[in-house]
Design a protein around this nucleic acid. Structure first.
Lengths: 244, 244
DNA sequence: TATGTATGAATGTTCAGACATATTGAGATG
DNA sequence: CATCTCAATATGTCTGAACATTCATACATA
């Protein structure tokens, strides 16, 4: 039996403490595989708090679609949890990390710009709406490898002053409680123009792998529109798709 | 002063009724422009329900970022409000469209060749082993779009005389009881060489989207090694990764 | 003028409990 | 054996209350 505890004297609200506790709890494989979480009444009793406070915490996770409550049965972790999904399309960073290659940011620019037509249609926002645009040039010691251009939906609440050196989806999840769940991608090949050739340190006309990606939350609402320009000579985009 | 009412005898929960009420309320221009919504205590009293029930409703809208609550001030409609509820999936412009339907084979060649080193390593087979190689040039009316080069593992049992005009994976599943379960892909961008430029009817040096794919059965054993060369001007490779 | 201070108003947090409703499984009934 | 009933269990809904925290404002003070 796990033992939890709650600090009644802390300034952080009890429900926030429970929320953190649950976020840790649902990482445990047992729960990932469908085991029922401790029921509300028992958990409240064990923690020495009210059931309402427990519900306040679980409510949030249910809203985020991390948990699923079933009347008369109990609460479980939503299947097809985000962690596995993220691995699929962020496998790139992971692979680089596992190979011992240190991938780092060369430059990060964040600014507020008026959304162009493509972004507006994607985000379903009005003309002249400003969105946060972020450019990240990333690469290894020997040089840049990829230029990311991201547009974030205003709903997310990013200001542009965040610490973007940490993994982006961690930032979104922890600070903004925005979970990236679905991504739709389009991949194509283009030739480097003047701007790309300068930023990626290649010649004009060199092949560039161009990838568009729309990242949405579990509710299908768009979070980010991401454009990636990869140096084709130093990068291969890998994907693993499981059917079924 | 607006008059609201709540049906205590209805089967729809009170908080749901309040939620609907609020959703209507926030469409009113006054509130859109920042006017404070009726405060919780007053609203609860007016509706004859508990403040907690009102909060239960507002909580949901706050989570959806339709409302913003400010301690000590009140509750307002979130600016950059998204009234048009986003439907299930955003309309990401498939540049590829449904071209796949009118796709047809230009030419199919099947022949038995000695596996080269890359194929041997992938299939774990001995030197001088023969494998079935298949080349398919596919495209639309206006011209070819993609050149597929496939190598099939001898274990599958293909002879080379099959009807390759039907969908490949149907053929494998129905006639050879081989199920394609996992595919690993690597995508890159290259420039067209002489051979590619002739087959795809483009110029030497034009960008080509190059995709390697290893298709395996559920046991992880390789079935097919597939190389795809896509004309980048007429094709975008789209991937959708979703939950469920 | 500038700064501190009290006050009212609003949301934030938390409690303890009552009753409703869906699910599941065990046991009774045919 | 099949089916109905019932009880245990878990979440769903709702109440009324108390106190904390934050904000804006008006007022008093230096």
């Amino acid at each position: 039996m796990e033992t939890f505890n709650i600090d009644h004297s802390s300034t952080t609200p009890l429900h926030a403490q429970v929320e953190d506790l649950l976020r840790d709890l649902i990482k445990i494989p047992e729960y990932q595989e469908g085991k029922l979480l401790p029921n509300e009444v028992a958990l409240a009793k064990q923690l020495g708090i009210s059931r309402n406070t427990v519900r306040q915490a679980t409510n949030k996770l249910v809203f985020e679609r991390l948990l699923v409550r079933k009347k008369g049965v109990g609460t479980t972790v939503a299947k097809n949890n985000i962690i596995t999904k993220l691995d699929k399309w962020s496998s790139f960073t992971h692979e680089m990390g596992e190979k011992g290659v240190s991938f780092r940011n060369y430059r990060i620019d964040a600014s507020w710009v008026e959304a162009d037509k493509e972004v507006r249609q994607l985000f379903h926002i009005a003309r002249h709406t400003k969105v946060l645009k972020m450019e990240r040039l990333r690469g290894v010691d020997s040089g840049p490898v990829v230029l990311f251009v991201s547009y974030f939906h205003p709903r997310v609440g990013l200001t542009g002053n965040e610490d973007f050196t940490q993994p982006l989806y961690d930032l979104l999840e922890k600070q903004y409680h925005t979970v990236a769940a679905v991504s739709k991608e389009g991949i194509s090949a283009i030739l480097a123009d003047a701007e790309l050739s300068e930023k990626l340190e290649i010649e004009v006309g060199d092949p560039v792998l161009f990838r568009k990606r729309v990242v949405c939350d579990p509710g299908g609402r768009p979070i980010e529109y991401n454009l990636g320009y990869y140096r084709a000579d130093s990068f291969t985009y890998t994907i693993e798709i499981k059917r079924e």
